[in-house]
């Protein structure tokens, strides 16, 4: 097996091991939490017999390890259990929510990632001149403002004053793709503005770092234009640090969008999680935690893999 494949396989295996460890952590965390599930389902007025019966039915009397493995076993078969509060199948309710969250995150990513890269390269091209300062300053301003503030600003100006997009991002299954896009326009813009600065600044810094290399001088002495030097000669050598930051931000788009979802009343994972934490619906919280962890681990694994593959020394060994 080639060195490259070995490295990639290593990453994938590590990713799965990490996910396994996280599943144990999540399970342990919800174990430690105070409160009794049976009690919270039946309420304060439940009789001790009813509580005992429910505990037995829920399997709460089994040792923690047994319950962990049966939970894990069901998980591997795609069964996330049923919600305690309404008895709904968690897999199917998460499925719809997750689709919405991923859709919003994808729209934001499709806007933000290319924009951040282009702005980063522009900032390098005109470094320490006004375009650089304008880009750095404005993206920094957006990252400094809280998300809810940007969200309400957009609602006020774009939705209320201009009336271009709806202020409430309601989506339902019968919507067409275009309608969905229009519905998520404002939350996606908010998210874009929030994650833009970090990615753009990393792009700028990573490319500037590479611009010191001797091969950039070679490119200049070949008579290439500034943009070609940055895009063709500097950027390919700066991918690894950039992709790491990009993936961290993409993970944030999926895992950290609770505030934006609440502002725009968007039916995504964040709201679902918050609702069920409030109700102490442990199986739902566990399932959501695991899904978020899976995305986080997957995106970071992807970042590692892209960084490895972008290295010509590993791709083309001697």
């Amino acid at each position: 097996m080639s060195h490259l494949l070995k490295l990639l396989a290593q990453r994938v295996v590590l990713g799965f091991l990490l996910l396994l460890a996280v599943s144990a952590l999540i399970f342990m965390g919800t174990e430690i939490l105070p409160g009794d599930v049976a009690q919270s389902i039946l309420g304060q007025s439940a009789t001790p017999e009813a509580l005992a019966n429910l505990r037995r039915d829920l399997g709460l009397n089994e040792p923690a390890l047994t319950r962990y493995f049966s939970w894990l076993g069901n998980l591997l078969q795609g069964d996330l259990g049923t919600a305690l509060t309404n008895g709904a199948d968690i897999s199917s309710s998460i499925g719809k929510r997750l689709y919405n969250t991923v859709f919003l995150a994808s729209v934001a990513a499709v806007l933000a990632v290319p924009l951040a890269l282009v702005l980063g390269m522009l900032a390098v091209r005109y470094r320490n001149r006004w375009p650089d300062k304008l880009i750095s300053g404005s993206t920094l301003a957006f990252i400094s403002l809280p998300e809810f503030f940007i969200g309400y600003l957009l609602i006020y100006f774009v939705a209320v004053k201009l009336g271009w997009f709806p202020s409430v991002a309601t989506v339902f299954e019968s919507m067409s793709f275009a309608e969905r896009l229009s519905a998520v326009a404002l939350p996606a813009t908010t998210l874009t503005l929030v994650v833009l600065a970090h990615m753009m600044r990393m792009t700028r810094a990573a490319i500037l770092n590479v611009m010191q290399s001797a091969y950039i001088e070679t490119a200049e002495l070949k008579g290439l234009t500034g943009f070609k030097i940055i895009f063709r000669h500097a950027f390919p050598n700066a991918i690894a640090p950039i992709v790491n930051v990009v993936m961290l931000n993409l993970a944030y788009l999926i895992v950290g969008v609770v505030v934006v979802e609440v502002i725009f009343v968007y039916p995504g994972m964040g709201q679902y999680l918050v609702d069920h934490v409030a109700k102490r619906d442990v199986p739902v919280v566990q399932a959501c935690g695991l899904v978020f962890a899976a995305f986080y681990i997957f995106l970071n694994m992807l970042a590692d893999i892209i960084a490895i593959v972008s290295n010509p020394r590993l791709r083309h060994p001697k």
Binding site: S213, A214, T218, H233, P236, N237
Partner: peptide
């Protein structure tokens, strides 16, 4: 006018 640098190892772009 073309240029040949002292260290070709550093003057070639590793990515191409």
């Amino acid at each position: 006018v073309c240029y040949v640098a002292q260290s070709a190892a550093a003057a070639f772009n590793p990515a191409h």
